[in-house]
Simulated assay, not measured.
Amino acid sequence: MSIGNSPEDERPFEDVSEEARPSVGRALKEARIAAGLTVNDVSSATRVRLAIVHAIEADDFAPCGGDVYARGHIRNLAKAVRLDPAPLLARFDAEHGGRPAPTPAAPLFEAERIRPERRGPNWTAAMVAAIVVVIGFVGFTAVKGGSDDTGAQGQIGEGSTPTAGTSAPPTPKSSKPADPTPAPSDSAIAAAPQDKVTVQVSADKGRSWISAKDHNGRMLFDGLLQKGESKTFQDSSKINLILGDAGAIQLYVNGKKIEDQFQPGAVERLTYTKGDPQVG
């Protein structure tokens, strides 16, 4: 019988220190790969741009635009790859100085207390200014009236004597103003040019995130379209669309309504060209 530690007691302890844990970005990336998802899949599901997803997985949070936005992106990405966001947010706060502290209420009340009282209008100064304006206007009118009378008398003396039978020349009638030309609107896409492709996206049934690019891949719009809003895009040959919630969108291509029955919540990638609507 031996005295001492058993072989099981001599096994090395598992390293569970903070340094051994994966970083926030690495944990998100490993979970995404384990779930069989691509960066495009995660970007479409969370509405987080591809560049920001790549940056977060590389532990670069500068493109997020601040710690508040970075925490929101981390929470959304963690849910998309089926991770608990709480440990990731705690690690992010520990590495970036913690969550911003709430503004104490006492200084706010103190600032409100020492705010100077609002004074009423100075009616005396206003009355003096009004009297000065009236006196000036009366004087200017008197001087101007005297000069006009002198000019009129000079004109009568120099010209021929007016006769009683002479009548004043008739006043010309003003021509009728032309009707204002109505400004063109986005709804008038029925007259879309034949040499271009025109696409109107209307959020008739609810809000939806949309992305639109031209044939060169240049971004025309990338954002959220609220219910009732619409956007019109035009290109010489092709428009590429991504609809975050296709069921909430109604499309009009080259003046024609697209009758495709998109499902609510479905993400659709569409391409339209010149001529009759053809889904690419």
Rank of each mutant, 00 (worst) to 15 (best):
S175R: 11
E229C: 02
P22R: 02
E10S: 15
A125H: 01
D214F: 02
P193S: 06
R32E: 03
A78Y: 00
I52Y: 00
I3P: 01
P172L: 09
L241T: 02
I156F: 11
E229S: 09
A35D: 10
A126I: 09
G72N: 05
T273H: 10
I3N: 13
A80W: 00
A45W: 02
Q194H: 11
R119D: 11
T232S: 14
A129Q: 10
G247D: 10
G206Y: 03
N76H: 05
N122M: 01
S23D: 12
S202F: 15
H96M: 01
A126K: 13
S160M: 09
E8Y: 05
P182T: 03
P182M: 09
A70W: 00
S211C: 07
V253F: 08
K196W: 04
A94N: 03
V133Y: 13
R115L: 07
N122F: 00
K176R: 13
Q153V: 09
I242Y: 08
R91Q: 14
I33W: 05
V16G: 11
S43V: 06
G165V: 07
V279F: 10
A20I: 06
P169M: 12
V128G: 05
I156R: 07
E229K: 08
D235H: 08
Q194R: 11
N40S: 15
S6G: 09
V143M: 15
G146K: 07
A248W: 01
A20R: 03
S236D: 13
A34H: 03
V253H: 12
S237D: 11
E95A: 07
G98N: 08
I135D: 13
L89M: 09
P193C: 04
G244E: 02
G275Y: 13
V128R: 12
S44P: 02
A90Q: 15
L89S: 08
N240M: 13
I52D: 00
I258F: 01
H96D: 03
V42Y: 12
I242S: 12
K227F: 01
T232C: 09
E30W: 04
T46C: 04
P100T: 01
R218T: 13
A80F: 02
V42A: 15
A152L: 14
R115D: 07
I56D: 01
K173V: 11
E19V: 06
K29N: 12
I210P: 00
A130M: 10
N216E: 11
K196N: 13
G120H: 06
N40G: 11
G280P: 11
P22M: 08
D235W: 06
I3G: 09
S147F: 07
G98E: 08
E19A: 12
D245V: 00
R218Q: 10
R75H: 14
E10M: 12
H54G: 14
S208F: 01
E229G: 03
S160P: 14
K274I: 03
F137H: 11
